[in-house]
Every structure is written in C-alpha cells, then in structure tokens.
Amino acid sequence: MATEKELESLCSQVRRDIVRMVHAVNSGHPGGSLGCTEFLVTLYFETMKHNPKEFKMDGIGEDLFFLSNGHISPVFYSVLARSGYFPVKELATFRKLNTRLQGHPTTHENLPGVRIASGSLGQGMSVAIGAALAKKLNKDDSTVYSLHGDGELDEGQIWEATMYAAGNKVDNIICTIDVNGQQIDGPTDKVMPLGDLEAKFKAFGWDVLKIANGNNVAQVTEGLKIAKQHTGKGKPVVILMKTEMGAGVDFMMGSHKWHGVAPNDEQLAQALKQLPETSGDY
C-alpha cells in the first residue's frame, strides 16, 4: 500500500515522463495524459491487484485495466514502466521507429501490460465487458477496469456496451469516464453536448459514482475504493471523474489546445520546473 504522499510524488515523476516523451518526438497527447495521471497512478500503485513482474495475457486472478481512449498512451506507458512491466528507459523509444511504445497502445509489439489495441475510440468498454464475462466464466472474482474520455462517449458503440452491461448484470467492471469537458475541436458542450451523464448512465441501469476532483490523489483513492465495494451487486459501475486537461502544468490547463500538441524546448523547461523529479528521469 502506498501513502498519499508517495502517490503524489509518483504523479510528479509520471508527469515529467509525459511531457518529456511528447517533447522528444514532437507529437503525442499531453493534455489528457496529464489529466489522468492521478487516476492511473492510483489504480496501478494502490487499487489493482496485478503482477507487473510476470505479465500474462490472460490475467487470471488479477485485476485488469483497459485503456479505451488510447491517445493518452504517454501516461499509460509511464505508469506501466514505473510499475515494473518494462524498463523505464524504454520510455525514450515512444513513437520512434521499431518501438514497442506505439503512438497508440497495441498488443502487436508485445509490450507487457497491454491487452488490447486502442486508438480508434469507443471500443474499450465492449472489450472490458468481454474480459469481465470471461472472468465470470472462469470463476475469477477479480475486477475489470476501463478508462474512457468524455469526448469518446460520442461514439455509438459505447451506448451499445452500456446497454449490454446493465441488461446482463455485468457487475465486475468499473468504467471510469474522464470528464474534462474538452475534445479536439473544443469544449464537449460545443462539439457534441453530452447532456446529463449521470442521468444517462442511471437510465441505462448503471450504478453511478463520482469523483469530484480526479486530480486529487486522496479523492481518487477513496473513489476507487468505494467503486470496488459497489461491484458484485448486479449492476455495472461507472465513475464520472472530473479532471482538468493538462493538470500539473499551468500553461496547459483549462483548454483543449494541448490535447494533441507537444511542448517546444522552452515550454518543456517551463513545465519541468513545475514538476519535481522524484523517482529519477528515464
């Protein structure tokens, strides 16, 4: 079990990894990655039971995580590496030719910790449901987690999956929605208004929980703990988690502009000044 302070300190290091990775190749998605840092750090270092040293695709007896919004691969890779799935120095290969750290996560290059390719949006909830159904068939009582962007909810397949999970009592999944209110073309309210997400998921038959500040380690830890207690009760569980896109780097926050843009040299230096190196840069 990690302390709150340890998790916070890890978040700072993961954020350094994120901005350095996207800067190095002048591409990638820092905004959503920074916004979901507390969530992924907490999930991998506190919440899930998993075995990074000996990755097995079937994950039997382990909690599983599926990243549906694959473009936030920088935070995913950093957290996987720092959990011990693969060497931290491999983060330097992100998006480069012959890398296992493809622009969007894939199983194709056999990167330990990744169980499905994602990038084309809206597919991860279905995959998580499938993995959860297999766990039920295998009499495996561990939990399946997934993360989705709020913009991703524009995709129709998400609602097919939402209907299925409730209708078939898939109660061993916890899907988290990163509600940052931003997507590529602007605020979600402008691009495709999502309406009342809580009411929508409730109407579909889900158990709806909230994390008011997804950039607060204590709130994320508590939220995930409560969510786990809500599993196994006949309903799928969704967490609506409010985050700030670009969190942790002042000039990247509060705008959709850093969704898929890398910082230049000067901006990188400015970002790193705000993020103490806590576990050693790759």
Binding site: S126, V127, I129, Q157
Partner: peptide, 13 residues
C-alpha cells in the same frame, strides 16, 4: 460493434 468488442475481450480470459 459491441459483439465484436466483447468477443475480443473474452479472448483475454
């Protein structure tokens, strides 16, 4: 679409 995704997820187990 959901069917294909669920099928893919089931193979994991």
């Amino acid at each position: 679409a959901n069917m294909i995704g669920i099928a893919a997820g089931m193979t994991v187990g």
